[in-house]
Amino acid sequence: MRISPKMATLLTLSVIMLIAPFFFPSAYYFRIASLVYVNALAVVGVVILTGYAGQISLGHAGFAGIGGYACALAPVYLGLHPAASVVFGALASGVMAWIVGRPILRLKGYYLAVASLGFGILVSMVLTNEIAVTGGPDGMKVADLGLRSWLSERGLSLTNGQFWYTITALLLLAGAWLALNLENSATGRALRALHGSETAAGTVGIDVASAKLTAFIISAVYASVSGSLIALMNRMITPDIAGYMHSIEMVTMAVLGGSASVAGGVFGAAILTLLPQALTSFDQYEQVTLGLIMMLVMIFLRQGLLPGLASLLKGRGA
């Protein structure tokens, strides 16, 4: 029996998630792996927007900020449970994406890039300056999700690291599953079609503006949930989460890994989260090495690391 590319991606991801912990040298690695999964979740959203639909956003950290601060603020001001706050943040991000996306998605290429960058900066400024509510640049504390103690009362006791490893892994799997479903559906095909030719997409009946908006909203929800997880995992949050560096990181991870596929995006997130850890021994050369690797990958493997390496391997096999 042949397995579909979708199942292959999900199976590979699950197997890696299951066996990776056996190779962790210390408990600290549970945390690093969780960060990989959280970043990858946001990047899967970027794959939908950029890889499928061909639209760029340099402001998606703004949605991560909305998701993150929803978990910090909603329990305090609205009395929501932290888990419900994740959903609340996702809804807020979706609505915000709908409002912001309609005018800016009419723009193309670098105009869209700059407009979305502006949105991200706006969110980060609000979070930094509304000190009375957000605590300003120092950030604020985030309530405990409470699920770990609930589980331990029922006999399943996990360390904090193991617990977040499991949560983030499961959510990344769910996010990847949704994005892979989308890829080969009418909606996903419409997105990839308008990426190829907006004119032709229109003539087959695709409402290009509304399809782009759909992609923008879905990807905003991914970024939002990723931001919520960062907040809940760290038990605190600062406006950095919405900073433009975070936006650029998301896009870079997607493009470096191969933005056309979920697998590529996840791979890129893993590389760019792990590499800085691995390069810390290079001391002051860490950033230089990282920058150099990024440049070389883009020059020699333009489609991204995963498709690039795959075609290299195939070429050697043949």
Binding site: H195, G196, S197, A200, A201
Partner: peptide
Amino acid sequence: NLQIFQSM
């Protein structure tokens, strides 16, 4: 002037 969805 063909308008094909090239990468599909």
